Amino acid sequence: MTERQDLLDFPGTEALQAAGHVELPSPQALAQAMVAVRAAAQDEAVVTPLRRRRLASGRRIVATAFVAAACAAGVVVYTNQGAGSPTAQAPQQAKTISAATFLTDTAAVAAAGPMPSGQYWKMHMKVTYENGKSSTFDEYISRSGYHIVDGGQTFKKPASGWRLGSKTVDWNGLDQLPTDPAKLLEIMESSKEYAGQSAFLQASSLLAESPASPQLRAALFKALAGMNGVKLVGNVKDSAGREGTELAFNGISSSDRTIVDPKTSLLLEATQTSTKGHLGLIDRRTYLSVGPAEKIG
C-alpha cells in the first residue's frame, strides 16, 4: 500500500472522493470538526510501542474527523457513562465525556455563530404548564418591549429583561455584560438564591430567549461548565421529537433539565419539575424556532 493509499484508508473516504467538490462547511460545522480533531490528536499523544507501529491508524482517525467537516454533516454524540473525549462517529461508537467537556465544546460552536440582527428577537414556542395544559405562540422581543402573538391576536407588554444575579438585564444591557466566564458565574451566583440553582436557570434563560452575541453565548456555556452540580444526561429527544443533548441540575426546589442542540448550540427545551411543595409538577418550554425578525407577523 502506498503512502497516499494509506492516508486515504479511513471510514468515509469513498464518500469524500465521490463527492468531488463540496461547499465550505458552516462555522458551526468547522468548530465541531476542530473539537473532534483535537480529541483525536490528544488520543494519539500517548504512543506505546504497539501504537507506534500503528501510527498511520492515528492519521486515519484525524482524517475521519475532517470528512465530517468536508461534508458538513458530522454529529458529535454525547453520553454520560464514564469518561473520555467526543468524536465524530456513529452513536453506538460514541465515547463518553463530562458535562464540563460538552459545555466547553458547545461554547466553541456558539462562538462561531452569527451575530443577532433585526428589530425583533422572535421565539416560536410551546409552553406546557403545571396543570398539563399547553399553549403554542410567538413572542417578539424588542428594545422597548415585547409582543405576544397567540391565536391571531397580538398583545403588547412592557420591556422586562432577563435575570442575572439579583438584577434584571434588558436588550440594551446584554452588550455590557462581561464575557469572562468566571465573572459571569460570579454575577449569576451573587443572589445566593437556591444555592446555585438560580445560576443554571439564568444562564439557560439567556441562552434560550435572548439575542445574546456569540461571545456572550460562548461565555455562558463556559460559565455553566464551571458550575458544580451540572450533570450530563446524554442524547435524548425533546417533546417535539428533535435530537439533542440533555443537561440536568438538581436544586433545592426543583429538578431542572435543558436540551441543547450540539450542532448549533441552540437550546431546544427547558423543563422544571418541582421537588418541593407540589411534587411532580412540570413546567416545560419548547423552543420550536428562535431567531431575528424585522417585523411582527
Results as ranks from 00 to 15, higher is better:
T136H: 03
P91G: 03
K156G: 10
G151R: 08
G20W: 12
Q81R: 13
F221G: 06
L288I: 00
F221S: 07
G12T: 08
V76S: 15
Q93I: 03
H147N: 08
I61T: 13
D150W: 10
A65C: 07
T258A: 12
Q202L: 07
L232F: 06
L220H: 02
L30N: 10
A15N: 08
W121P: 00
M227Y: 09
S142P: 01
G277T: 00
N250H: 11
K237T: 10
P25S: 09
A225C: 07
G145F: 03
E186P: 02
S210K: 07
R38A: 12
P158I: 01
Q153T: 06
D261A: 13
R51W: 11
R285M: 04
K231D: 04
T106Q: 14
G132W: 00
D175T: 12
F200I: 00
A83K: 11
A33N: 03
Q17D: 05
P178N: 13
A70S: 10
A100S: 14
K276C: 02
L232P: 10
I259N: 00
K237Y: 07
S204N: 09
M1K: 10
S213P: 01
A72G: 12
P86A: 12
G12K: 09
K276D: 06
S134W: 04
A69M: 09
G12H: 05
V77F: 03
S265T: 07
L207Y: 04
E44Y: 01
G251I: 02
V47R: 15
T64Q: 15
F155V: 09
N131P: 05
K263G: 05
L185Y: 02
D170L: 07
T106D: 05
S117E: 13
A56P: 04
D150M: 07
E44M: 10
S160V: 13
A94T: 00
E246D: 09
A94Q: 04
T2S: 15
G234L: 08
V67M: 08
L201D: 10
G132V: 04
N172D: 15
E14L: 15
L267C: 07
A107E: 09
R60K: 09
T96G: 15
Q89Y: 01
A15D: 05
Q176G: 15
P181S: 07
G280Q: 07
L207E: 05
R143T: 11
R52Q: 11
I141P: 00
Y78N: 02
Q28I: 03
E243F: 12
P292H: 07
V236H: 02
